[in-house]
Nucleic acid binder design. Structure first.
Lengths: 187, 187
DNA sequence: AAGCCAAGTTAATCGGATTAGCTTTTAGCT
DNA sequence: AGCTAAAAGCTAATCCGATTAACTTGGCTT
């Protein structure tokens, strides 16, 4: 009986990939075990259970999203940076709906929770975008929350097929970027 | 043994209330049965199962949200209407996080699906807000999607404790309304 | 070569959803 | 008032997925 050579990272990565394929709700321990070539109970040697698995997938997703947004923004400022960040974020959510869904409603247990660290990295990436605008110190937090709400809302609505009408979705997203840019520049 | 006098509407209403209390994920058939004073299998006389129950809760939630936003907007226009609609929507989501969560990622099966009708009513309520601004016909759809994304994003992030920092959340929301109003008026 | 630990395995257990089949209430009809 | 059939309940049984217990073995250390 050959060893599968698993470790927590491999299990989490496979779980995230599977969640993207079948949806977070469809991610079962049995399906994941089959995917990594092992019997179901063996997964418990690497992760604590379904809740722990979801948490780890969320951490992975937040780090990946932060990387994607962070590197998309490199070398840009102002509107270009805003557009690059927003597009990168939306692209990430649409390509990885399952793992992104794992991040929703997940609360860090404390400041040293890896989840908090990962979430902070994503926030930092968006904060960098705002530095390209003339925003009063007291407005930065509000603007950050707006950016996050817009990106999160748009991406999750689209991922869940929440937009039912005819107009082109990409066009709406670009419109939304332009709208936000105008507003931020007018401050 | 006395009849409980249930019907589908009563079961769905109780399910929605329970979802608000324990979270959508915590809503089990057993818990709901206990709540309405009946054994678990009896619920199946009124709803088709858990998926059907979730769908019906979603329809209820969308109608209630549309009612809330629609009546909040009555008699207002422009910025006042925008503020009233946004506040009503957010209040609804925060007071009824469970039933609102049921609406996420739920796709209507066709144009005559009650879910489509209910969703359209909510959209119509937001569309009414936009009529108070001078927006080109070609921009209305985009603006509507932005409004929906903003409200949905902000409310769900807050409901899921997605905002971790210090700044006051109500203040951020008012800031966001002002920002959007300025942008819409500048079109 | 002995021995230990991590990674696997099989066999149970447990809880929640759902189905089957039976009983009883109750609305509608005569 | 009495008949009857559908609706609304119930108990018992099944199924499936998560999790735990207890055993086995591969692979490295000493």
């Amino acid at each position: 009986m050959p060893r599968a050579g698993l470790d927590p990272a491999a299990v989490v990565a496979a779980g995230a990939a599977l969640a993207d394929e079948v949806g977070l709700a469809g991610l079962t321990m049995g399906l994941l075990a089959e995917r990594v070539g092992v019997r179901t109970p063996s997964l418990y040697k690497h992760v604590g259970g379904q809740e722990d698995l979801n948490r780890r997938i969320a951490v992975l997703a937040l780090h990946e999203a932060a990387d994607a947004v962070g590197s998309a923004v490199q070398g840009y400022a102002g509107r270009d940076a805003l557009a690059a960040a927003a597009r990168a974020f939306r692209a990430f959510v649409l390509e990885h709906p399952g793992r992104y869904a794992a991040t929703i409603g997940m609360e860090p247990s404390g400041p040293d929770d890896p989840l908090a660290t990962a979430g902070q990295r994503l926030l930092d990436a968006f904060t960098a975008v705002l530095r390209g605008y003339e925003i009063a110190e007291s407005d930065v937090d509000h603007a950050l929350r707006m950016l996050r709400s817009l990106c999160h809302g748009f991406a999750t609505l689209q991922a869940g097929n929440g937009f039912q009408w005819s107009a082109d979705i990409d066009e709406s997203f670009e419109w939304l970027i332009a709208f936000t840019d105008r507003g931020l520049r007018a401050m």
